[in-house]
């Protein structure tokens, strides 16, 4: 994973609630076997409606998206995160995220910043004209108007993002603990450890 520290730039003021991952990337885009090229299909239905914020020239290549409650609900498709990355997004700000999307975003180095609705409302206002800055190290979102909104982030995720750590590499460091767990379990709950397929009785 690429290291992330500060993200600065224009933010697309989408604002809608319950943006599900079918909206972020519709199913007909999921037939790919690669992670690239999905930006073209990102937010397809929204982008098809005239006057949508993605069409505004100021927001071309904007690194930040601002959305409403429960962003990324629905399907677990990581294609949603890949599509957002591919269209140049590096962060999303919303009052809440679905658990699965938050995980997928993190794994792809997309910052999912949770802020209370009134702060999101203020940022939606500012974003129309001005850039926004997200400082991960200090866990704060700022605007050119002296707004300072502190946000919480899981310390493990923060460290991984700042240092660009490979999570699988980290886990493999616990190899002996995993093996030990398997051995203990093999004794206590052997059927869990060694499933064997036999013809149905």
């Amino acid at each position: 994973m690429k290291a992330v520290s500060t993200i600065e730039g224009r933010a697309i003021p989408l604002g809608l609630k319950n943006i599900d991952t079918d909206v972020i990337i519709p199913a007909h885009w999921l037939k790919t076997v690669s992670r690239e090229g999905l930006g073209e299909g990102a937010f397809e239905t929204i982008r098809a409606t005239p006057g949508n914020p993605f069409d505004v020239e100021d927001f071309a290549q904007a690194p930040i998206l601002i959305a409403g409650d429960n962003f990324g609900c629905g399907s677990s498709r990581e294609h949603a995160a890949w599509a957002m990355l591919d269209m140049g997004l590096a962060a999303v700000i919303a009052p809440s995220f679905s658990d699965i999307f938050a995980g997928n975003a993190f794994k792809n180095g997309i910052l999912a910043v949770e802020l209370p609705q009134e702060h999101v409302d203020r940022l939606l206002e500012v974003a129309k004209e001005q850039p926004i800055t997200i400082d991960l190290e200090n866990q704060v979102v700022t605007t050119p108007f002296q707004d300072r909104f502190a946000f919480e982030i899981d310390p493990f995720r923060k460290r991984c993002l700042l240092e660009g750590l490979d999570e699988i590499g980290l886990t493999l460091g616990s190899e002996s603990a995993i093996t030990q767990h398997e051995q203990t379990r093999g004794g206590a709950l052997p059927w869990l450890d060694k499933p064997q397929r036999r013809e149905a009785a």
Partner: peptide, 9 residues
Amino acid sequence: GIGTSEVEH
């Protein structure tokens, strides 16, 4: 449910 990075993990 998990995402593809977690599938890999």
